[in-house]
Simulated scan of single mutants.
Amino acid sequence: MTINFKDALGVHADALHVRAERTKVLAANIANESTPGYTARDVDFGAMLQERAALDSAGPGNGDLAMLDAETLYRVPFHPSADGNTVEIGVEQAAFSQNASDFQTSLTFINMKLRGLAKAIQGQ
């Protein structure tokens, strides 16, 4: 009997991938805080996760497609700047921090699942 790690890990593997993509977008926002005319972006985590799960269930190799451009949304600033830049560093740092915390939570769940599988394999 073989172990299907995709089924064993559940949604957390896809969540890690989507969180990593979101980290890239948020990091780009923070890096372009001083760039005139730069428009802050973000991703809809729930929609991107559902689309990723649908691609994974469609067959092998289909989940490797980059969906970042299709799912990127533009952030509406609370206080627009005169140079057209919509990055608000406090908002971006808070979103980045929350995303990092959620990433760590998914890693913890995967770690617990893998430890459980290791114990089951060892017969404990």
Rank of each mutant, 00 (worst) to 15 (best):
Q93H: 10
Q98F: 09
T86Y: 13
K113P: 03
R75Q: 13
Q122I: 07
A82E: 14
A13V: 08
G116Y: 04
Q93I: 09
F5T: 10
T2I: 13
L73Y: 01
S34G: 07
P36F: 11
Q50G: 15
L16S: 01
L49W: 02
G116M: 06
R75M: 15
V25D: 00
D102E: 14
N85T: 12
F109L: 13
P80M: 07
L107K: 04
I89V: 11
A47T: 09
L26I: 14
A118I: 05
L49S: 08
R115Y: 09
A54P: 00
Q124G: 11
K24G: 11
E21M: 07
S101I: 12
R22W: 06
F5R: 01
M67W: 02
F78I: 15
L55N: 07
A54C: 04
G84Y: 04
K113D: 07
G37H: 05
A13S: 12
L114V: 12
P77V: 04
A66S: 14
R22T: 03
G59C: 05
V87A: 14
T108W: 00
L26H: 03
Q122T: 06
N99F: 00
A28W: 00
F45A: 04
L26P: 00
G63T: 06
A13R: 06
D69T: 13
A15E: 05
S57F: 03
M48A: 11
F45S: 02
P80G: 07
A15P: 08
M1T: 09
G116T: 07
P77E: 07
S81T: 08
R41L: 01
A40D: 12
V43Q: 02
I121N: 07
D7C: 03
S81P: 00
V18T: 03
R52N: 08
V76Q: 14
V11F: 07
P60L: 14
L114W: 02
A120D: 15
A40C: 12
A31S: 10
A31P: 10
A95M: 14
G37T: 03
I121S: 10
E21K: 09
R41G: 00
A20M: 11
T23R: 06
N85V: 06
D44K: 09
K113R: 15
I110H: 00
A27P: 04
G63C: 06
L49T: 09
Q104K: 11
I89M: 09
A58F: 03
E92N: 08
P77W: 03
V11Y: 04
D42I: 00
L107W: 01
V25S: 02
E71R: 11
N111P: 02
N29W: 00
V76D: 15
Y74D: 10
G84I: 01
T108E: 10
Q104R: 10
K6D: 15
A100C: 09
A120F: 13
